[in-house]
Simulated assay, not measured.
Amino acid sequence: MAGEQHQDSTTDVVRWAAFSCVLVPVVLLWYGTSLAGATGTALGLAAVTAVCRVLLRRSERGATRSLAEERAALAEEHASLAPRRGRHHRSGTGAHRGGRHSGGNTPGG
């Protein structure tokens, strides 16, 4: 769920950057900048936006991978702290724990 929210915010940032790639040259043309200057600005903004998008996606993948590794390490730590219940590591009480059995099926009483 948090990953989806993070991805949505990244998508929003990229959308706003793309919007500004269109808006800034239009405003520059409105205020009298040459078409070549506005086009150069648009291309520069598009290049910066593309690089930022690649870096954001790479960062998301790294964060997702790091989170998965952290969860795996926590699960492994939890498993190592859990009580062992194998053949020689039984926990709890029972008839097979050793010692004398009280009452029950003894011939003398």
Results as ranks from 00 to 15, higher is better:
10 T>G: 07
102 S>H: 14
73 A>V: 05
76 E>N: 11
42 A>P: 01
90 R>I: 10
99 G>N: 03
87 R>Q: 06
86 G>A: 09
18 A>H: 06
5 Q>D: 13
11 T>M: 05
86 G>R: 08
32 G>V: 06
3 G>D: 13
36 A>Q: 13
81 L>H: 11
82 A>C: 05
20 S>K: 06
42 A>I: 04
59 S>K: 06
74 L>Q: 15
109 G>E: 11
31 Y>S: 13
84 R>S: 08
52 C>A: 15
75 A>H: 06
41 T>A: 13
58 R>S: 11
34 S>I: 04
20 S>G: 03
29 L>K: 07
66 S>C: 06
85 R>Q: 13
69 E>G: 03
41 T>E: 03
38 A>I: 04
87 R>N: 02
26 V>L: 15
106 T>Y: 07
43 L>M: 09
61 R>K: 14
79 A>P: 00
24 V>P: 00
91 S>W: 08
107 P>V: 06
12 D>I: 05
4 E>Q: 12
31 Y>C: 14
17 A>G: 00
65 R>S: 11
83 P>Y: 03
47 A>C: 09
25 P>T: 02
20 S>P: 00
60 E>H: 04
44 G>S: 13
21 C>K: 01
99 G>H: 02
88 H>C: 10
75 A>R: 12
10 T>V: 15
104 G>A: 08
97 R>T: 12
2 A>D: 10
95 A>Q: 08
88 H>I: 05
18 A>I: 03
17 A>P: 00
55 L>K: 05
70 E>A: 15
61 R>S: 11
89 H>I: 00
99 G>Y: 02
94 G>T: 05
100 R>P: 00
95 A>S: 12
26 V>Q: 12
34 S>A: 08
97 R>C: 12
14 V>W: 01
57 R>D: 11
25 P>H: 01
71 R>H: 08
16 W>A: 14
60 E>T: 02
54 V>E: 05
45 L>G: 01
56 L>R: 01
2 A>W: 07
45 L>P: 00
70 E>I: 09
49 T>R: 01
105 N>A: 15
13 V>Y: 02
94 G>N: 04
62 G>I: 02
39 T>D: 07
72 A>K: 12
99 G>P: 01
2 A>M: 12
6 H>D: 14
26 V>I: 15
19 F>W: 09
61 R>N: 09
17 A>R: 01
17 A>N: 02
16 W>G: 04
48 V>A: 15
20 S>R: 05
39 T>V: 14
7 Q>M: 07
23 L>V: 09
15 R>D: 07
46 A>M: 06
22 V>S: 09
25 P>G: 01
8 D>F: 06
96 H>T: 12
30 W>G: 12
55 L>I: 04
54 V>S: 04
31 Y>Q: 14
16 W>H: 15
4 E>P: 00
30 W>K: 15
58 R>M: 10
74 L>A: 15
77 E>R: 14
84 R>Y: 02
15 R>H: 10
24 V>M: 07
60 E>K: 02
85 R>H: 10
79 A>L: 11
25 P>I: 01
96 H>C: 07
38 A>E: 02
57 R>N: 08
62 G>A: 10
109 G>Q: 11
1 M>P: 04
3 G>M: 13
51 V>L: 10
74 L>E: 15
19 F>K: 09
9 S>E: 13
96 H>K: 08
38 A>R: 00
107 P>Y: 02
4 E>M: 09
29 L>N: 02
79 A>R: 12
72 A>R: 13
105 N>K: 11
58 R>W: 07
74 L>K: 14
97 R>N: 10
55 L>H: 03
